[in-house]
Design a protein around this nucleic acid. Structure first.
Length: 576
RNA sequence: GCCCCGGUAGCUCAGUCGGAUAGAGCAGUUGCCUUCUAAGCAACGGGUCGGGGGUUCGAUUCCCUCCCGGGGCACCA
């Protein structure tokens, strides 16, 4: 609806400019749905922008534009100049009523488009290393990344969802050592680690009561480590006590932890197309290759026994270590190699979704792959801030170190995936998110926005069920007739439905799926009261024509609610 | 100290590449209504858009500066 009107404005602008002998291209004007309905269905600021190049007062320009817009047949019912020179436009009611038919015709496709048809996009997200269960921050990112992917798919992109993890470095070794220590403890061959209260100054004894302390100082304290160890004891008894290093334990732990992560993601309805890892890059020689190519461009030097990236030559603030003096790479080198592979795989667009604690690294990766000749304008970063959890009106303390953080699994157990997803996606990514557990657990549909939206859908289905029971014919795309939908609230709902394709497009382009969550809440906020009223208007009434029209509206709203929820990966139940 | 992100109603937050009288939900007050699924509708109250300066027809939005909160500034991930 908006895009057609936008074209009309654009051609009117061109005419006006040409007439005045101006070579200037039409300015980038706005055409928006105004907050205040008294300002029309759409409001346009074009005349204000054109006033200067045309050297005429804005209101006069507006008049001339209106004359051109309203000439000939009309989707436009009326247009008027307002304020300093805005043009407010009202469309004919029929234009909105026709939406009923077009929504029902398009069905599940309504809202989708081909704006980005065929674009190959990679979205990399979560990418948590398999050292423990997913935390709320990961959960937020999982939902965010998946919703971005869904929005992109809705505008025609072909999306590869990808999960990359580091499994070659020190953290995985510590993971293995932690499991080994618990294993030995359970067999009575090692002492449990002392509680230092997280204080790095407290000494770490080599043994307690004659038993060695094997648990590493920076080991993983979560219960899941002990569980993995217990599995090993049950499976192999004490056969592993003589294992030389942490290797066996590390492999088992990685497999187990990663399996759990995938289960969690499954429960969230998130499925990755590709899992990449650091070890594969090693095995394929990608690190050496990348290092050699960087060296060729004089971006590598050695100092203090380490190998450095000369990032200052790429106008970054400082140089950074690529290979530690221990001979082990930092995460920077594999990250650079990995991103280079992304470019080689031919994506049109590469989107990294990363937590706020990771963004420091991004400029270095981008600069490095840029220096290696990759078209970095295709690479973009979506950053997401942390999640805090509020329970009983108080913030829940989270400490990764002491493993007292709340996991995605725990929360899913309390609220289920639909509520979890809705709450995680409803805030813009770059802002902090306060997860209000009391509200999330509240099953009162009126209060809990996730249920409120789902309930709007379920109710519409209920209306249809009731209609069938009463033997009322269910309208379809061919028989639906919106022309009887003339109550203000009905037109308002139709206009809302008309916004949906624009909302999807915006969510996709801006990588901001929270707009969808807001918008669908607004639609439900119009529809639930409409159904609730039942006095001023009933869907099922004595008037067959009106019943058919309103039933058509119910079907259309239900379709759009379902489509919007689909974009958010949330189910649209037919009953609640 | 430097970098990134926030600061909008009592609370949680939207706010369209600069637009008109700044919005929603929840919470509060008042009146009405009694339902196609679990009550809804209407009205009211509530704001120096963190402070100050600048840019211009116009700034919550852009620039500068300061304050507050979160995160980051490793040969940790």
């Amino acid at each position: 609806m908006r895009s057609r009107l936008h074209e009309r404005f654009q051609s009117a602008l061109r005419e006006l400019l040409a007439e005045a002998g101006s070579q200037a291209p039409p300015p980038d004007f706005s055409l928006e749905v105004p907050r205040n309905p008294e300002h029309g269905d759409f409001a346009c600021n074009a005349a204000l922008l054109l006033a200067k190049p045309l050297e005429r007062p804005p209101r006069q320009v507006a008049e001339q534009l209106i004359a051109r817009l309203t000439a000939g047949e009309g989707v436009i019912a009326r247009a008027e100049v307002a304020g300093p020179g805005f043009i407010n436009v009202w469309l004919r009611d029929e234009r909105w009523q026709d939406l009923l038919r077009s929504v029902l015709t398009q069905g599940r496709r309504y809202g989708r488009s081909e704006q980005a048809a065929g674009a190959q996009v990679q979205v990399e997200f979560v990418s948590a290393n398999p050292t423990g269960p997913l935390t709320l921050g990961h959960g937020r990112q999982a939902v965010l990344g998946d919703c971005i992917a869904r929005a992109l798919e809705a505008v025609g992109s072909r999306v590869t969802r990808e999960y990359y993890f580091n499994n070659g470095g020190r953290q995985m070794r510590v993971l293995g050592e932690s499991v080994r220590a618990r294993y030995l403890e359970q067999l009575g061959r090692a002492a449990p680690p002392p509680d230092t209260g997280g204080d790095a100054e407290t000494p770490w004894p080599e043994s307690i009561d004659g038993l060695p302390v094997v648990f590493p100082r920076d080991g993983y304290q979560g219960d899941y480590i002990g569980e993995i160890a217990a599995d090993l004891v049950a499976r192999d008894g004490d056969a592993l006590t003589e294992e030389p290093g942490e290797g066996v334990f590390r492999e088992v732990a990685e497999q187990q932890v990663f399996g759990e992560i995938r289960k969690t993601l499954d429960a969230l309805g998130i499925h990755f197309d590709v899992y990449s890892n650091e070890m594969a890059l090693y095995q394929e020689g990608k690190l050496e290759e990348t290092l050699a190519d960087l060296r060729m461009r004089d971006l590598v030097y050695e100092s203090e026994g380490a190998v450095w990236l000369r990032a200052t030559a790429l106008s970054l603030g400082r140089d950074r270590v690529l290979i530690k003096k221990t001979g082990e790479p930092t995460y920077l080198l594999p990250d650079i190699a990995y991103h280079r592979e992304k470019f080689r795989r031919g994506f049109d667009r590469i989107i990294d979704v990363q937590g706020a604690d990771h963004i420091e690294q991004f400029p270095f990766v981008r600069a490095a792959v840029g220096a290696l000749g990759c078209p970095v304008e295709k690479l973009e970063l979506v950053m997401n801030q942390f999640v805090t959890l509020t329970r009983g009106g108080e913030q829940v303390k989270q400490s990764k170190r002491r493993a007292t953080y709340v996991t995605v699994d725990e929360l899913l157990g309390e609220v289920g995936p639909d509520v979890f997803r809705f709450f995680m996606v409803q805030r813009k990514a770059e802002g902090h998110l306060d997860f209000d557990l009391d509200l999330a657990k509240d099953t009162d549909w009126k209060k809990n926005p996730a249920y409120y939206v789902q309930y709007a859908h379920a109710r519409s289905c209920g209306v249809e069920r009731k209609a069938r029971e009463q033997g009322v014919a269910i309208p379809d795309a061919a028989s639906a007739d919106g022309s009887l939908l003339s109550l203000p609230e009905e037109l308002e709902i139709l206009k809302k439905l008309g916004e949906f394709p624009d909302v999807v497009a915006r969510a996709a382009e801006a990588r901001e799926p929270h707009h969808l969550a807001y918008w669908v809440r607004e639609l439900a906020g119009l529809w639930n009261p409409y159904l609730q009223d039942g006095v001023r208007h009933r869907v099922l009434s004595d008037d067959p024509a009106l019943t058919s029209a309103r039933l058509g509206l119910a079907l259309a709203v239900r379709t759009v609610l379902a489509n919007a929820l689909e974009c958010l990966g949330i189910s649209a139940p037919e009953q609640m």
